[in-house]
Design a binder for these strands. Structure first.
Length: 309
DNA sequence: GTAGGGTTAG
């Protein structure tokens, strides 16, 4: 419950104090770490579970396969797969979907397809993960046709399905198709676009060299663009150039929201030649302020002066 | 029966 409420630390504390653990409490704890994006901790709990001679069931394995995906551990994923085949654990829709996700994120797209095609029942998640997996592995066309096939079968794509398909369009340079799908998502399916969707659209325009259109997405999206979107746009601007001058505020914003990432300062320096900005280094100073970062001489803030304030 | 799975961006 604490895990579900987002308090992973307290969940771990409760778990540590438990004297009687069963497969459900072990699995809950592993799942909690997966949800909190702490796959190494999830793995460590699983190792403890093995030590305690508790047998994993299909719920445990779904979470563990997700760990394999996050850490790109194909060997571990394969061994879970063979464990399933030799055990009496039933390969249900969720478990098969988790296997597809694991193989796809590890780059084994044929294996993912093999499992997908052999499934009797598929749900929205199975379709979505297969579509995204194809897109991710450079099979954008197949991803798009699978998306339409899924719609034909009566599945209603959700926000995550659209993230996957828009990303496929972006990678393929299919600007019109991407715009049409985005429009469908909003007007037909009444799905509110998220940061991810705007990011895909901006990235799609940027890659295609449509810098003004990409900039328009950044300026009109209803939330502040995150660092990934900003970097994607800046890089597109650098690669393609534009008749409109570069907006220095984007770099300022990048340094503001992510002052601890050193490579952002490289980007900032590179863009100075494009925009003539950086003369006073004000933005660097502003970004370092309150972060305990101290510029001593020249390049030295990149070294470990953080705690010397 | 409890617990679980899917997404993007240089």
């Amino acid at each position: 419950m604490y895990a579900a409420c987002g308090d992973i630390g307290f969940a771990g504390q409760v778990f540590d104090e438990m004297t009687e653990r069963d497969v459900v409490s072990w699995s809950s704890m592993i799942a909690a770490y997966v949800t909190s994006k702490q796959p190494l901790n999830a793995l460590s709990v699983f190792l403890d579970m093995k030590q305690a001679k508790e047998k994993p069931n299909s719920v445990t394995l779904v979470s563990l396969l997700s760990v394999c995906s996050h850490l790109v551990k194909i060997k571990m994923g394969e061994s879970i797969h063979s464990y399933i085949l030799t055990s009496d654990i039933k390969l249900d829709v969720s478990l098969a979907t988790a296997l597809i996700g694991m193989y796809a994120t590890c780059g084994y797209i044929e294996k993912a397809l093999l499992i997908f095609n052999s499934m009797n029942n598929r749900n929205l998640q199975s379709w979505t993960i297969m579509i995204s997996g194809l897109a991710e592995n450079g099979h954008g066309e197949e991803a798009i046709s699978l998306f339409y096939k899924m719609e034909d079968l009566g599945f209603t794509p959700d926000t995550i399905s659209f993230s996957g398909i828009l990303s496929a369009c972006s990678h393929l340079g299919l600007v019109e198709k991407g715009q049409r799908l985005f429009d469908q998502m909003v007007n037909l399916y009444k799905i509110q676009p998220t940061m991810e969707h705007y990011g895909c659209m901006a990235d799609m325009f940027g890659r295609a060299g449509m810098i003004e259109e990409a900039y328009h997405v950044l300026k009109t999206m209803p939330m502040e663009p995150n660092s990934i979107i900003l970097r994607s746009f800046i890089s597109a601007y650098k690669n393609h150039g534009s008749r409109v001058s570069f907006d220095d505020n984007l770099v300022k914003l990048l340094l503001k929201i992510e002052p601890d990432l050193g490579s952002n300062y490289v980007i900032s320096a590179n863009m100075s030649s494009v925009s003539g900005y950086w003369r006073e280094e004000d933005d660097v100073r502003a970004a370092m302020k309150g972060k305990g970062l101290k510029k001593v001489t020249g390049h030295s803030w990149l070294q470990d002066n953080r705690h010397s304030s």
